[in-house]
Every structure is written in structure tokens, then in C-alpha cells.
């Protein structure tokens, strides 16, 4: 078995098969938590953790789960993992956990997780499933970080809470673009990412 083949599930989802902009999964959280960079990072890490662990567990159970109740089994596994993440986050960083409000709970219904469990974990061995989980988590996180970066930079002039644009710019008449903080701009930023991405990957164009 050559090395390149092993790492296909890890590398593919980062650009060519990106979960957000190519497979169009997990949009809800990708848009809702990105008005600042920090919650976006926390969300990316949480989803990666839940996704890779859920992938491994479902992959281990794949031969024992009856076909007809598999959705419920998957939901329970994911829900249990999300409860763990939720409790850890509440103990470790209460501020961010408050800022993310219901969106940690909504990882359960994040379509990336259900999508990968259905499409990959149910038919693959645990190790590739784990890599697939990590890869998709990174691909998802990458988009979140890019969107969060632009929205926080132009919306509030800060990154991770630190001031980036110097005061002299504001004195010279520069103003924060309040529209970037509002929800609709998240959609338009993602659309721009899709535009750039598809201009380079011509085979993805419709």
C-alpha cells in the first residue's frame, strides 16, 4: 500500500472536495459563528474533534448497526460526543461557550457529520475514517477561519480581539464596515470564496 493512497482522505477535503464550498455541507454553523475569528477557531476545533471521533466509532460499529435504525444510532453517538465537547468548553472557556450559544449543540445536526458518517464511515475501516474526519474538519475549519478573518478585520478592525488598524487611520476618516458584522455578509464572503476557488478549479464549474 503506498503512502499517497493512504492520505487521500486527509488531503482531498481540504481543497478539491471541500465540505463547505464543494459538497455544500454544514453551512449553518459556518456562517453563524464567523463574525469574529476566535469563535470560528473554537468551532473548527470542536467540529474536527467530534467528526473524527464519530467517524472512528461508527466505522468500528459499521458491521453491527442494523440498516434500518442507523440514523438514530449515528445521532446518539454524535450527540454523546457533542455533550462532552459542550461540557469541556463550558469549563475551559465560558466566554466563548456563551458567544457560540446554541451552535455547539447544533453540531449534532451539522450536515458535515451526518454526511461523512453516511458516505465514508459506514463503508470504510477505522483508520481511513479517522483521516477522513480530520481532513474534512480541516477543510471546514479553513473556510471558517478565512470568513472569520475578513469579517472581523473589516467589520471591527481587530483580529482575535487585538486592534489591527492603528488609531491614526480612524482619525484620517477610515470607518469600520458595520455591514461585515451582520449575517448576510457572511453569505456573500463565502460566495466570493467559491468564486475564486472555482475560477482556479475549472472542472468544478457548472
Amino acid at each position: 500500500m503506498n503512502l499517497k493512497k493512504t492520505f487521500i482522505p486527509l488531503v482531498n477535503p481540504i481543497s478539491k472536495d471541500n465540505p463547505v464550498i464543494v459538497q455544500v455541507l454544514g453551512i449553518c454553523s459556518a456562517l453563524a459563528v464567523t463574525s469574529k475569528l476566535e469563535p470560528a477557531l473554537v468551532m473548527a476545533v470542536s467540529v474536527t474533534a467530534v467528526l473524527s471521533l464519530a467517524n472512528v466509532i461508527i466505522s468500528l460499529l459499521r458491521n453491527t448497526i442494523p440498516q434500518s435504525i442507523r440514523i438514530i444510532v449515528q445521532l446518539v453517538v454524535v450527540a454523546a460526543l457533542v455533550v462532552v465537547v459542550d461540557q469541556v468548553l463550558k469549563a475551559w472557556n465560558y466566554e466563548v461557550s456563551k458567544a457560540l450559544s446554541v451552535f455547539i449543540g447544533l453540531i449534532i445536526t451539522n450536515c458535515i457529520i451526518m454526511g461523512r458518517l453516511e458516505a465514508f464511515a459506514l463503508s470504510n475501516r477505522p483508520w481511513p475514517a479517522f483521516l477522513d474526519g480530520i481532513g474534512n474538519g480541516i477543510g471546514y475549519g479553513l473556510i471558517l477561519v478565512i470568513v472569520g478573518f475578513f469579517r472581523e478585520l473589516f467589520g471591527s478592525g481587530t483580529l482575535m480581539g487585538y486592534q489591527i488598524f492603528p488609531q491614526s487611520w480612524y482619525d484620517a476618516g477610515y470607518m469600520n464596515n458595520g455591514l461585515m458584522i451582520l449575517p448576510p455578509m457572511a453569505l456573500i464572503v463565502v460566495a466570493c470564496i467559491i468564486w475564486v476557488h472555482r475560477s482556479y478549479n475549472k472542472d468544478l464549474q457548472e
Binding site: V24, I188, A191, I194, W195, H197
Partner: peptide, 12 residues
């Protein structure tokens, strides 16, 4: 525009 067709324009 071609790269925007489908999902891109729907987002906008």
C-alpha cells in the same frame, strides 16, 4: 459568470 453558477450565485 461561469464560476459563480449554481451554488455561488445562490449564496449571493
Amino acid at each position: 459568470p461561469k464560476p459563480l453558477r449554481g451554488i455561488g450565485i445562490t449564496f449571493i
